[in-house]
Every structure is written in structure tokens, then in C-alpha cells.
């Protein structure tokens, strides 16, 4: 584990603390934003170094996945916060997930290793990019829904605006998730000669995709009110987390990336 990883983790933890402090002391928001930006920069640098050392994109194994997820959340919140003044507090939605993700990743092997042969394909990279777009968007929707369920006004936005933002994030997430399934199915055909294998990760991903499909249809075509919409988004969260991380503790899947480095004697 590198020093940059520890710095990112500390800055993220600091941002979470400042987000909580800001509930009473609004000036803490400025420091929290700064801490998030610094964490995003540190994560960018840390992952770039890791990429250079391992020779591949840092998206393999639980440690790298959780690190990259944290980076994606922090970087998205930072960039959107700079570009859109009305969303400058978006970092408050991102940092708890980033901290949880990095903390979980600490339990796994962290030394960089080369890719196994089945991972050496551009399709895997494209599959992972779609996956991250989907996960970051869905976690964003979940945060907004959680704040609304406990009676808050996420990011200080009026209800109509947060409705629009959630719908947009949900649709981006769904598009990303669909792209992830399509590219994954194609690569499964390339590797195994079959598009679908009813692997645990695939089963959970299918159920998650169907569930978000139901939420989107409820929202767009059945005029679900905010309360029902928010609750539905929160209900799908366990499936989303399971679909993305079940392989990290259940190795009997084609998606297992924490391969033990077994010596022959």
C-alpha cells in the first residue's frame, strides 16, 4: 500500500468529518471541499503511479477496485463541483462512499501484480469503464434519495431540481450498467463461447439491472412520487453493492480477481 493511498484515505476521512461538522458550522464546507479536491488529486497521482508500476489499469482485485471507485467518486464530485456552482457541495454525497470503499479495500492484498491472460483485453477495460460510470451514478442517486428520505434538502436544491438531477443520474447509471452487461456478455462469448453463464455476479447484475429498470419506469411512466421513488432507489442499493463486490468474498465465480499467489512448492 502506497503513501498516496494513505494520504487519500486520510483526506477522505477528513472530508467526511468536515461534512458532519458542517451540519452545525457551515464554514466547514469550504474546508471539506478543499479536502475532497486534495483527496481526488492524491488518488489520481496514486493510481497513476500504480498503473505505471503494474503496467495495467488499476481495476483488478478488490484493493484496486475500491481505490478506483473512491477516485471516481472524488474526482467526479470535484469536477462537477467546479463546473456547476449549484452542485458545489456534491462532494458531501461522494465522500462517505469513497471512505467506505477504501476502508473495505484495506482488507485485501495491495501489491501490484500483472494481469492474468483473461484480463488482458480492451473489452475488460471498456466493461470496467461502463461499470464505474454506472456505480458512481447509482451511488449518487442513492445519496440524494437517502438525504430526502430523512427529510433533508440534498445540496440545498429545490425538490423539482433534485428530482431532475436524480432522474438524470439514474438514466446515466442505467445506460452505463447496460453497456457493462453488453460488453461483459460479448467478452464472455470471446472467452467461453457463451454470452451468459448464470455466474453469481451475472445473476445479481441481472437482478440489479431489472430493479433499476422498474424504478425508472415507475418514475417516468407511472409518475411515482418522490417518497416512493426514493424508497425504491434505497431498496435496490443492497443488490447494487452485492453485484459489484460479491466476488471479493465469494471466489466461486468467473469474476474473481483476488487470485492467490500460490507457489508450486
Amino acid at each position: 500500500m502506497s503513501a498516496l493511498h494513505i494520504i487519500t484515505l486520510s483526506l477522505t476521512a477528513g472530508a467526511v468529518a468536515l461534512s458532519v461538522i458542517a451540519l452545525q458550522w457551515r464554514s466547514a464546507l469550504r474546508f471539506g471541499r478543499f479536502s475532497t479536491t486534495a483527496a481526488a488529486l492524491s488518488a489520481t497521482l496514486g493510481l497513476a503511479v500504480r498503473w505505471a508500476v503494474s503496467g495495467h489499469a488499476p481495476i483488478f482485485g478488490t484493493f484496486e477496485n475500491t481505490y478506483t471507485l473512491a477516485w471516481a467518486l472524488l474526482a467526479t464530485a470535484t469536477v462537477v463541483g467546479f463546473v456547476r456552482r449549484d452542485l458545489e457541495d456534491l462532494w458531501r454525497m461522494a465522500v462517505p462512499w469513497a471512505l467506505a470503499s477504501m476502508t473495505y479495500g484495506l482488507q485485501f492484498r495491495s501489491e501490484p501484480v500483472p494481469l492474468t491472460i483473461s484480463e488482458q483485453s480492451l473489452w475488460v477495460d471498456i466493461h470496467a469503464v461502463f461499470a464505474w460510470i454506472a456505480l458512481v451514478s447509482f451511488l449518487g442517486v442513492t445519496s440524494l434519495a437517502a438525504v430526502r428520505v430523512i427529510g433533508g434538502r440534498p445540496l440545498g436544491l429545490p425538490a423539482e431540481r433534485s428530482d431532475d438531477l436524480m432522474t438524470e443520474l439514474l438514466m446515466i447509471g442505467y445506460a452505463g450498467f447496460t453497456g457493462m452487461l453488453a460488453t461483459g456478455a460479448w467478452y464472455s462469448f470471446v472467452l467461453f463461447g457463451t454470452f451468459w453463464q448464470w455466474d453469481i455476479v451475472e445473476s445479481l447484475a441481472l437482478v440489479t439491472w431489472l430493479s433499476y429498470g422498474v424504478v425508472i419506469h415507475g418514475r417516468l411512466f407511472y409518475r411515482w412520487g418522490s417518497r416512493r421513488f426514493d424508497m425504491a432507489v434505497l431498496l435496490v442499493l443492497p443488490l447494487l453493492i452485492a453485484a459489484y463486490f460479491v466476488w471479493s468474498f465469494f471466489p466461486d465465480t468467473w469474476h474473481f480477481f483476488d487470485i492467490p499467489l500460490v507457489k508450486p512448492y
Binding site: V113, P114, L115, T116, I117, Q120, I259, P260, L261, V262, K263, P264
Partner: peptide, 11 residues
């Protein structure tokens, strides 16, 4: 394989 471990890097 990678170094001396069971990590298949080329086929």
C-alpha cells in the same frame, strides 16, 4: 507465468 507464482500471464 508471473515470477514463481500461479498467475497465468500468457497463453
Amino acid at each position: 507465468y508471473y515470477e514463481d507464482v500461479l498467475l497465468f500471464t500468457r497463453l
